[in-house]
Simulated scan of single mutants.
Amino acid sequence: MTFGQKVRYVRKKLDYTQTEFAKVLSVSFATVNRWENGRVAPSVLAAKAFYEFCEDSFISFPSEE
């Protein structure tokens, strides 16, 4: 799963719009949109914030087999 796919997976699982999820992560709507579409990779701090959010929210990703 790419980073963008993970972002979309978590956002959909929580039933958030891109705008709502951007607010939760303290980034812009455009940033979430670009991550999901694979146009830009997250900064180290943004990726850390995303993974910490997932951990704090008890969200795990489907296993890749």
Rank of each mutant, 00 (worst) to 15 (best):
M1R: 06
M1F: 02
T2I: 10
T2K: 08
T2Q: 12
T2C: 04
F3S: 03
F3Q: 03
F3G: 06
G4H: 04
K6T: 07
V7N: 00
V7Y: 00
V7D: 01
R8S: 12
Y9E: 13
Y9Q: 10
Y9D: 08
V10Q: 01
V10R: 00
V10E: 05
R11T: 04
K12Y: 00
K12Q: 15
K13Q: 14
K13D: 04
L14A: 07
L14Y: 02
L14H: 05
D15S: 11
D15R: 11
D15W: 00
Y16D: 06
T17K: 11
T17H: 05
T17D: 02
T17L: 05
T19H: 14
T19L: 15
T19P: 00
T19E: 15
T19Q: 15
E20T: 05
E20G: 08
A22G: 08
A22L: 08
K23V: 03
K23G: 07
V24I: 13
V24R: 02
V24S: 06
V24G: 00
L25K: 08
L25A: 04
L25F: 03
L25G: 08
L25R: 06
S26D: 14
S26C: 11
S28E: 11
F29W: 13
A30T: 10
A30D: 06
A30I: 11
T31M: 13
V32L: 06
V32Q: 02
N33E: 04
N33C: 13
R34N: 15
R34Q: 15
R34K: 15
R34S: 14
W35H: 06
W35N: 05
E36N: 06
E36F: 00
E36I: 05
N37A: 01
N37Y: 06
N37K: 12
V40N: 13
V40I: 13
P42K: 03
P42H: 05
P42L: 02
S43V: 03
S43W: 02
V44E: 11
V44Y: 09
V44T: 12
L45W: 01
L45T: 13
A47N: 02
K48C: 07
K48S: 12
K48W: 02
A49K: 11
A49Q: 09
F50K: 03
F50R: 03
Y51Q: 06
Y51I: 08
Y51C: 09
E52K: 14
E52L: 12
C54P: 03
C54H: 03
C54E: 02
C54F: 01
E55Y: 04
E55D: 15
D56N: 15
D56A: 11
S57T: 07
S57K: 14
S57Q: 15
S57N: 15
F58H: 14
F58T: 09
F58Q: 15
F58S: 14
I59K: 07
F61S: 13
P62G: 13
S63P: 03
S63C: 02
E64V: 14
E65W: 07
E65S: 13
E65G: 14
